[in-house]
């Protein structure tokens, strides 16, 4: 007696299945969207618009780049003591750095920026007395100040996670070889930790590029700020499309460079067979 056994459907199905129709339709939609975007840009191409706003977009882009680079670097410097504070056995230091990280990660960047930029106005007399008013009067400085503190909290957590990720045996083995605590950290723990943290650091830079658009709200003329100014004068929607293209290209380029960098730096971890 034979039993009819129903088999699972073969994996690759032919013909016009539901998913194939949806796939072609959605891809077709994207292609149509892309073409209409190009068409829109060609039709509404205006040499006066380009010569007037092109250089402004470029200068806005440079301001964005400055904002991101300065904030990331200062944030990296601040993140080191905070990461160690988070790992400290001292309860006060541990608690304070936990509160710092929790505050900056738990509140919106926009609210923090307002707190610094408008909040500084509440302490004009004190800031003038301390000789710091010139700094907080400028929106660009306020944005850099806020972004640095914000990214330092995120970077501290990345650094802490990466350091804790390095096995205890590494430290013990290095100690057994007679190394002192600082060289152990610098030559054994940190290089391994940084490799683990490459990807989260890349993500943090991308988040910062995207987050820096917030500076435009406190009247910094970064890429987003220039876009908003151009739109408010021309009411031409292509300003926003150009900004989208610029941001997307920046983020994608960075992401690809970072992938290459990571592949290069972790090449010793890959097996030959992979």
């Amino acid at each position: 007696m034979t039993v009819d056994v129903e088999r699972p459907p073969a994996t690759a199905r032919r013909g016009w299945t539901g998913s194939r129709i949806t796939g072609y339709a959605s891809l077709g939609l994207w292609i149509a969207f892309g073409f209409s975007l190009v068409w829109y840009v060609i039709v509404s191409f205006d040499i006066a618009f380009m010569t007037k706003y092109g250089p402004r977009f470029l200068s806005g882009f440079l301001v964005t780049a400055q904002l991101v680079v300065i904030s990331i670097v200062i944030g990296a410097a601040i993140s080191v003591p905070i990461a160690f504070g988070r790992m400290s056995r001292n309860r006060i230091i541990g608690g304070l750095s936990f509160a710092y990280v929790y505050f900056f990660r738990g509140t919106p960047l926009l609210a923090q920026t307002f707190l610094v930029y408008y909040g500084a106005g509440s302490f004009v007399a004190e800031l003038k007395a301390a000789g710091l008013w010139w700094f907080f009067r400028d929106p660009f400085n306020c944005a850099v100040f806020t972004f640095s503190l914000n990214t330092s909290a995120y970077q501290a957590e990345i650094l802490r996670g990466a350091i804790l990720n390095v096995g205890r045996g590494q430290t013990e083995a290095a100690a057994a070889l007679g190394m002192k605590p600082f060289p152990i950290f610098w030559k054994v723990v940190l290089p391994q930790a940084l490799i683990v943290s490459l990807r989260p650091y890349g993500n943090e830079i991308i988040l910062m590029i995207k987050g820096s658009a917030i500076a435009s709200i406190v009247t910094v003329f970064d890429l987003m700020g220039e876009t908003r100014r151009a739109f408010s004068r021309t009411f031409d929607f292509q300003t926003y499309l150009w900004a989208a293209v610029l941001y997307l290209m920046t983020v994608e380029t960075l992401r690809r460079i970072w992938d290459r960098l990571e592949a290069r730096l972790t090449r010793h971890l890959r097996r030959e067979s992979d």
């Binding site: 658009a213 989208a244 941001y247």
Partner: peptide, 10 residues
Amino acid sequence: GMPELLTLFI
């Protein structure tokens, strides 16, 4: 890849 703020405006 786009800033959330830009998506919102668009």
